[in-house]
């Protein structure tokens, strides 16, 4: 026998507006604010050069020519060349990140399965053969 269909409550217009703003706030707080506060983004190191030349910047003659065609001189190019990614990381940070991803997927799959069983119980008869 099929499970009796669940009848969801009606949501008020105010409740819907609140829900919409919650999603908006979630995007802003979790994604935008960290960028605004420079907490997220590229982990880089910056080297500075005193009186840079193409040679001290590690650029050969061809590279220097192309930089100049793009409108750069050694001083303005130094601001770009001096920025490098910093790939040093702590293993604890790596483990925490990996754990967060793993827990997210495991938790989502387990909870989805719980909800899925309700869906199947409503959709199919108990005595109907499975695939």
């Amino acid at each position: 026998m099929r499970k009796q269909p669940y009848e969801p409550p009606a949501q008020s217009v105010f409740g819907q507006i609140v829900d919409a703003f919650i999603m908006l706030a979630l995007v802003l707080v979790t994604l935008y604010v960290p960028l605004l506060l420079k907490l997220a983004g590229g982990g880089t190191t910056t080297s500075t050069f005193d009186n840079p030349t193409w040679e001290t910047l590690g650029q050969n003659a061809t590279m220097a020519t192309q930089w100049e065609k793009l409108g750069f001189d050694p001083t303005s190019a130094a601001a770009i060349i001096g920025v490098k990614f910093d790939y040093a990381f702590s293993w604890i940070g790596f483990a925490v990140t990996a754990a967060v991803i793993l827990v997210y997927f495991v938790g989502m799959l387990r909870w989805s399965d719980k909800e899925y069983r309700e869906v199947i119980a409503e959709r199919f008869d108990d005595d109907r053969p499975s695939a």
Partner: peptide, 24 residues
């Protein structure tokens, strides 16, 4: 690729995961 994003953009990876975890 998760590891690739972690290299250099680790905090952004966590920010994105926070979004989906809180939304869930």
């Amino acid at each position: 690729t998760y590891f690739a994003v972690f290299l250099g953009y680790g905090t952004q990876l966590l920010a994105m995961m926070s979004f989906y975890i809180l939304a869930s």
